[in-house]
């Protein structure tokens, strides 16, 4: 290593990874607001989600899949999936995915596989990252495993959390 490449000032490279150097780090916002969309796939998941929708989020949208019956993915177009916002008004998947950076599929006792597939499929076509978050609170291991197995093909990250309080923890970590 040639000597002329040695740093000359305290702040000029990794050599200066000290407490004194830390004050040279520039403070400025280094990211734009994210566009996050959270979809609750079942009733339990919706309850966990509604408990936190009030918090001050950075533009995250919270949606519930309201269909009772089974969704057949091949027969369900993008805007055929019934969605509802926290105040009860309907929403369109095509609009919600517009410009989204991340889709979070929230599920608990029931996987609602058909609806998960429709959302994941549409997100995939738009190159949007899909995260599956399964809440184990109050559910048996078999149930959780069944839900996780259904979500696995559709998601690029899958998390099994034992407590509902992981939902806000994850969302704030991701600047949702």
């Amino acid at each position: 290593m040639a000597d002329q490449y040695r740093p000359t000032m305290l702040s000029s490279c990794a050599l200066a990874a000290t407490a004194a150097e830390a004050r040279f780090r520039v403070q400025y916002p280094n990211s734009k607001a994210r566009v996050s969309r959270v979809f609750a796939l079942d009733q339990h998941a919706a309850e966990a989600m509604y408990a936190i929708t009030e918090a001050p989020w950075n533009g995250a949208h919270f949606l519930t899949v309201t269909t009772r019956g089974d969704v057949v993915p091949d027969e369900t177009g993008i805007d055929d999936l019934p969605l509802s916002t926290p105040d009860g008004s309907p929403a369109l998947l095509s609009e919600e995915l517009q410009g989204a950076n991340v889709v979070i599929l929230l599920s608990s006792q029931h996987s609602n596989a058909g609806a998960a597939e429709v959302i994941a499929r549409e997100a995939y076509h738009r190159n949007i990252m899909t995260v599956g978050l399964t809440l184990g609170q109050g559910a048996s291991d078999e149930r959780v495993n069944a839900v996780v197995n259904t979500l696995r093909p559709f998601t690029s990250v899958l998390v099994v959390a034992s407590d509902n309080d992981y939902v806000p923890a994850m969302l704030s970590a991701l600047r949702a």
């Binding site: 990874a17 000290t18 407490a19 150097e21 830390a22 780090r25 403070q27 280094n30 990211s31 991340v102 990252m129 995260v131 690029s156 990250v157 998390v159 959390a161 992981y166 923890a169 994850m170 970590a173 991701l174 600047r175």
Partner: peptide, 20 residues
């Protein structure tokens, strides 16, 4: 830095292990 300033980081979904 001596103590990472995590108020400035931009985590992504593959960072879920760290988040958890």
């Amino acid at each position: 830095g001596p103590i990472a300033d995590r108020t400035k980081e931009n985590l992504v979904s593959t960072d879920n292990g760290i988040i958890m």
